[in-house]
Amino acid sequence: MPNTLLNLIVPPEAEDLVAEWLLDRDDVPGFTSVPVSGHGSSERSMSLAEQVAGRSRRVMFFTHLPTAVAQSVLAALGEDFRGSGIHYWLTPLSEVGRLKG
């Protein structure tokens, strides 16, 4: 079954809710989150302070899942977090595993 990397860019105010939501799902075995800065032309979605700084604070969640599961998670996320401003992308993975040692 092909694997996909699911990337979510989440506004900081939704970080805890999204983390809890992902942790509650049986089909998401784990994920990583890191603080990131968004840079781009979407000033209308930025606060005045973010516009002055030239970046917007966000949190990035990423996890690898079978493609069908990633699409299902994304569909459910779209229902539960509609209008939240979450940005996403899916990337096909050629290989996933752990180093043995």
Rank of each mutant, 00 (worst) to 15 (best):
L65Y: 11
A53Q: 14
L77R: 02
T67R: 12
L5S: 09
T63F: 09
A75P: 06
L6Q: 02
W21H: 07
H64P: 04
V96L: 08
D26I: 00
G101N: 10
T67N: 07
L65A: 13
R82A: 12
E79C: 12
P29M: 01
G40F: 06
E95R: 11
W21V: 01
P12L: 12
A14R: 14
G40S: 07
Q51I: 09
T67W: 05
V59H: 08
S45P: 00
A68Y: 10
N7I: 05
H87Q: 15
I9V: 15
T4R: 04
S47F: 10
N7A: 11
E50C: 03
Y88R: 12
L23G: 05
D16M: 10
L99N: 06
R58F: 11
T67I: 04
F31L: 01
P92R: 13
P29V: 02
L99H: 09
A19H: 07
N7R: 09
D16V: 11
P35I: 00
L17R: 15
E79D: 15
W21C: 01
Q51F: 03
L5F: 08
R58S: 11
Q71W: 03
T91A: 13
V69S: 02
L65F: 12
L74D: 08
Q51T: 11
D26T: 09
G30H: 06
L99E: 10
A14H: 14
E15A: 10
F31C: 01
Q51D: 06
G97R: 10
E79T: 14
V28T: 06
K100H: 12
A68H: 13
L17V: 05
T91N: 10
A19M: 03
A14E: 13
G97P: 10
L77I: 05
P66R: 14
S72G: 15
M60A: 14
S72C: 08
L5I: 06
L22T: 01
T63Y: 08
S37L: 08
V59K: 06
E15L: 08
W21L: 06
W89E: 09
H87R: 15
V18S: 02
F61G: 02
V52G: 00
R55K: 11
A75C: 07
D16A: 15
Q71V: 04
M60I: 03
W21D: 04
G40K: 03
V18L: 07
H39L: 11
L22W: 03
F81K: 09
K100Q: 11
M1S: 14
